[in-house]
Amino acid sequence: MAAADESYPADLRYHPEHDWVRADGDEHVFGITWYAQDALGEVVYYDPPKVGDTITKDAPYGELESVKAVSDIFAPASGEVTAVNPAVNDRPEVVNEDPYGAGWLVRVKLSDPSELDSLMDEPAYRAYLAGL
């Protein structure tokens, strides 16, 4: 496994539980940050929500399991799941290799896009990480 180098793309919004959101058309894509995958270690299992599930901001919507530990994945915003990344079920380590690209976790149709206003931008998330 080639783990990714630390990065926090400027076009994402960040949740304090180390989840990211990216706007993609009229839907949004969620994943976990470089910091989260590094803390978790080698990801070996993804327990995703189902397509059609309603997920709620700040609540767990799935689980990622590493060789070390199980971690809940927290929704950075509320909405309905429209797709689950099958690549992460096939090769969970893709979350370590490419947390912002091929390692995305779910696509969501947001119920209240204004929830995104409460999330951090890249400089704020980096400052938040520096304080941990």
Binding site: M1, G41, E42, V44, V67, K68, E93
Partner: peptide, 10 residues
């Protein structure tokens, strides 16, 4: 040492 590279590779 829990792992040196990754546990599955080891």
């Amino acid at each position: 040492p829990l792992y040196y590279s990754t546990a599955s590779a080891e």
